[in-house]
């Protein structure tokens, strides 16, 4: 486990004492909530971890019947091997209906001798208070680029992959705090080529290079609509990116483009959002993106013809 230093310290002390309160993990996707739950189970139970650990995805089965039957049945049978209790991992618990959450609360207490719950959710505010009251709550922040880098390098060494410096940077950009994305990108690129460099990463993840996007924006802002539009055409047809991907990257890049004042940036973000919406509503993403570039020209206030 990487990142989340504070949390990990606490969680490993549970493993040391071989005891565990009910836990609730909250945080955005890909920050290690599931991974933490699984590693706790592995370390606590060793070989028998798979029989003593069950994972339920609450967004698949979110009704009260799941709690009353599936969960309860697992909870009330005794643990396998030397384990003192079992663990039920409820992924995306915020997808459980209120009824189901209410039914869960007494189950959590009643079977506490045989079973501990780990709930994971994106927003703790979607979990009813009585459940929060029964859990130790851990918030998982987004993963830092450094943590992504550390992990990528570790995997590369273990798997004996050849990855270039700019390849690592590219993975950090693509992952954007999501470790799962980072590792997926690394694995896919490794299957494609012996050496993993930035182009491989960008290609496999259908991502434009950040400089290309910045150029796209600044060309338009400086009034060179023709050049900017040509660039856009390249991205769409030659590199085969989707309009959605491009608009997402423009959004990320616009904060960091140097020569646009903040007020303008906000105006543009509003336009980008509008374009994103229109792409899903409209039939032709190219037209929407061109219209967005035209907005950048308007915002820059320079027109060269």
């Amino acid at each position: 486990m990487v990142g989340q230093t504070n949390t990990i310290g606490r969680l490993s002390s549970y493993v040391r004492t071989e005891n565990l309160p009910h836990l609730m993990f909250t945080g955005p996707p890909g920050v290690g909530k599931t991974a933490s739950a699984v590693s706790i189970a592995r370390e606590l139970f060793g070989d028998t971890w798979q029989s003593n650990f069950t994972e339920l995805n609450a967004s698949d089965e979110r009704g009260i019947d799941v709690v009353r039957h599936k969960i309860k049945n697992f909870a009330r049978t005794s643990p396998v091997g030397d384990a003192d209790f079992k663990i039920i991992f409820l992924d995306e618990a915020d997808a459980l209906t209120i009824d189901a959450q209410s039914a869960l609360r007494r189950t959590m207490e009643k079977y506490t001798r045989t079973c501990r719950f780990i709930l994971s959710c994106n927003y703790s505010s979607k979990i009813i208070e009585p459940i929060q009251s029964r859990c130790a709550v851990y918030r998982f922040g987004p993963i830092t680029d450094e943590a992504v880098e550390e992990r990528v390098r570790y995997i590369a060494t273990e798997e004996q992959l050849d990855i270039t410096e700019d390849g690592v940077d590219a993975i950090k950009y693509v992952a954007h705090g999501d470790m799962r994305k980072a590792i997926n990108a690394l694995q896919s690129a490794a299957m494609l080529d012996a050496t993993i460099d930035r182009d491989a990463i960008y290609q496999i993840t259908a991502t434009a290079r950040p400089e290309e996007i910045e150029k796209l924006i600044s060309d338009a802002y400086k009034g060179d609509f023709a050049e900017s539009r040509r660039k856009l055409g390249d991205l769409l047809t030659k590199q085969g990116l989707s309009g959605e991907d491009i608009v997402g990257q423009i959004y990320r890049a616009v904060f960091d483009v140097g020569d646009i004042p903040d007020r303008k940036k906000i105006e543009l973000i509003d336009k980008i959002g509008e374009t994103d919406f229109r792409i899903t509503e409209g039939a032709n993403e190219r037209i929407q993106l061109e219209a967005l570039l035209a907005q950048f020209v308007l915002s820059g206030g320079i027109y060269n013809d």
Binding site: N6, T7, R10, S13, Y14, R16, T17, N19, P21, H22, T26, S124, E129, Q132, S133, R134, C135, A136, V137, Y138, R139
Partner: peptide
């Protein structure tokens, strides 16, 4: 929830210091 939090931060320790209180606020 106070007791749960206490267990979360104090279990396995012989001494509990203020800085150990890291469980997230509900």
């Amino acid at each position: 929830s106070a007791i749960n939090d206490l267990q979360a931060v104090a279990q396995g320790k012989s001494k509990l210091h203020q800085d150990d209180v890291v469980v997230s606020s509900r």
